[in-house]
């Protein structure tokens, strides 16, 4: 396939659920980076499913230490490479939304502020899936999770998702982007660009999760497309803080199209769907995707 590295850097046989979006994200990112890459994982789904000792799915050097410290581990790896005079090796970090937006926030902030030359990829499935679908600060408004369940007195999560990309832009990170596994060429182009720009890069990848969101596994990509087409998830990049939308859906679908196919949103009534639609409309305008 033109422009796509045909080598697999994440071997099959890993223990991901059927239809896993995280592995799609990792596979595509690694294709964009190529073999001259060292990967660092935060604790989470991707780490657990890929390295059941004495096996590993990784074809490239890989290290995992704990949940909250992947950016610090990567900083150390970068120091070691520099000390050895190795300058052309990519260092990519994979952290889930919990490992990035919650517990990993401090070490990520530190690494980005220091300008460590690492590519941080957050694979965002909008809850702590590895521990059983608990709410993270990346869980969207209205989602029912095991710690923000919908009930008689609750409509599920009552906060909007943390805007990580904006936080990264505020750090002065030279390359920040959002991506989605449903748009592989866009995702790979962004990862490639991230590797070519000196200094740190942050890419926030939305990856639907059949187990946590409540849909049938074959719909993983479809859900990603719906997120993009409803403007729930806007694909853009920010080069030195300048935001540019990279994928403009031909028509904007109502958010309900996205919400109604997922078990986590099934309890929402018109009022809450309206709140989400308002939020999405505002976000879409702010990013320049719609008038």
């Amino acid at each position: 396939m033109k422009g796509v590295d045909e080598k697999e850097y994440l071997a099959p046989g890993h223990r991901a659920c059927a239809g896993c979006g995280a592995t799609i994200a990792a596979r595509l990112a690694l294709k964009a980076l190529g073999e001259n890459t060292i990967a660092v994982s935060a604790t989470g789904c991707l780490e657990v499913i890929t390295t059941p000792y004495p096996e590993t799915a990784w074809e490239i050097p890989w290290i995992h230490v704990a949940f909250e410290n992947a950016s610090a581990v990567a900083s150390g790896v970068e120091g070691a490479l520099k000390a050895q005079g190795i300058e052309d090796t990519n260092i990519v970090v994979f952290g889930g939304d919990g490992g990035t937006t919650d517990i990993g926030m401090q070490s990520l902030s530190g690494a980005m502020e220091r300008g460590q030359n690492i590519i941080y990829i957050c694979y965002d499935n909008e809850a702590y899936m590895n521990t059983g679908i608990q709410r993270s600060s990346s869980t969207p408004f209205g989602a029912s999770t095991t710690t923000s369940p919908a009930g008689k007195e609750s409509f599920g999560e009552d906060k909007f998702k943390k805007n990580m990309a904006a936080i990264m832009v505020a750090h002065g990170v030279p390359y920040v982007a959002t991506a989605c596994i449903s748009h592989p060429q866009d995702l790979m182009a962004k990862v490639k660009k991230a590797s070519e720009i000196p200094g740190p890069a942050y890419i926030h990848v939305l990856q639907p999760c059949a187990t946590g969101w409540g849909y049938s596994p074959e719909k993983t990509v479809k859900l990603g497309k719906l997120a993009v087409d409803t403007h729930m998830w806007v694909l853009y990049e920010a080069v030195n803080g300048k935001i540019e939308v990279t994928v403009k859906p031909s028509q904007k679908l109502p958010v309900e199209e996205y919400l109604k196919v997922q078990k986590r949103f099934r309890h929402l009534d018109e009022e809450h769907i309206g709140i989400i639609q308002n939020f999405v409309d505002g976000q879409s305008k702010q990013l320049g995707l719609s008038e």
């Binding site: 060292i38 290290i63 150390g76 070691a80 220091r114």
Partner: peptide, 26 residues
């Protein structure tokens, strides 16, 4: 030496692990 001014002791040890894992003296 690469002197990394990390943002916490947790990260000091984590970066030490990253560097030592990468095969250098720390």
């Amino acid at each position: 030496s690469q002197y990394i001014r990390v943002e916490s002791e947790h990260s000091a040890m984590s970066a030490a692990i990253g560097a030592s894992g990468a095969g250098v003296r720390v």
